[in-house]
Design a protein around this nucleic acid. Sequence first.
DNA 1: AAATAAAACAGTAATCATTACTGATTTAGA
DNA 2: TCTAAATCAGTAATGATTACTGTTTTATTT
Lengths: 131, 131
Amino acid sequence: MALNHSRQRDAIMDFLSYRKDHPTAEVIYDNVKKVYPKISLGTVYRNLTLLADNGVIRRLRTRDSKDHFDADLSPHYHFMCNGCGCITDIFLDHTKELEAAANELTPGMITGHEVFFYGTCPSCMKIKNET
Amino acid sequence: MALNHSRQRDAIMDFLSYRKDHPTAEVIYDNVKKVYPKISLGTVYRNLTLLADNGVIRRLRTRDSKDHFDADLSPHYHFMCNGCGCITDIFLDHTKELEAAANELTPGMITGHEVFFYGTCPSCMKIKNET
DNA sequence: AAATAAAACAGTAATCATTACTGATTTAGA
DNA sequence: TCTAAATCAGTAATGATTACTGTTTTATTT
């Protein structure tokens, strides 16, 4: 596979590293374009897939049918707001416990899991209360 | 919204009720077509969306980028095989506990959550060992 | 049972996120 | 500097899902 470096891939990785909101390919594209105006959306997608396949980043599949990406590989869960679609991290200690419990109940072999919480974020709760 | 009945919708619901493997719209279409040969894929999609929006069934978004549907509304989690893509149920008691713990850490309001375990199912493990 | 309006249908076109393809450019190592 | 592999920009294609249109069912009222 031999992952080289490239200005574009590094820029994507860089952008993703300092963002904590797990942006979509589109958002990443819009932002990296500020630095590399000629970058194409295809390049963004190709690199995100490449990085995800090599375990450098995580791909999150959510209810909004767009993929989101996360450069933080530490075990943690996510919360998505049903109102605005924003995503935030949730760090719980249940990781190993959950996986162990699930492994006991399953004849197969479990190698990982994802948890998504859904609900309403603080700013969307405000809006609701005002209405 | 006023959900009537219709032969097609009832057939979809019926099929989904006795299947435990959370089929995709395509699979549901192929099967319901045996009973209603003229049913269209659009009808299947429209009804699945309608049923999901009315809380009669659950829509599962997975790594395979196809939606899967589940007529079992009881709180439970899912396991998906990375090999063949099959999905099975996992019943754990952690539901309330997890959500309570997450709610403490989040300024927003959590109303539900989904857990997906990934790994290798028994039959795919066999195949691996034989190779 | 006939009349009627709302809901649902089949069939098909359109959408949208993502992936694949092509010929040109960049990268890394000799 | 040279060269092969990797990557790129740009664009076409894919695949799941949704929207649209004119017709048929459904539930309800007479």
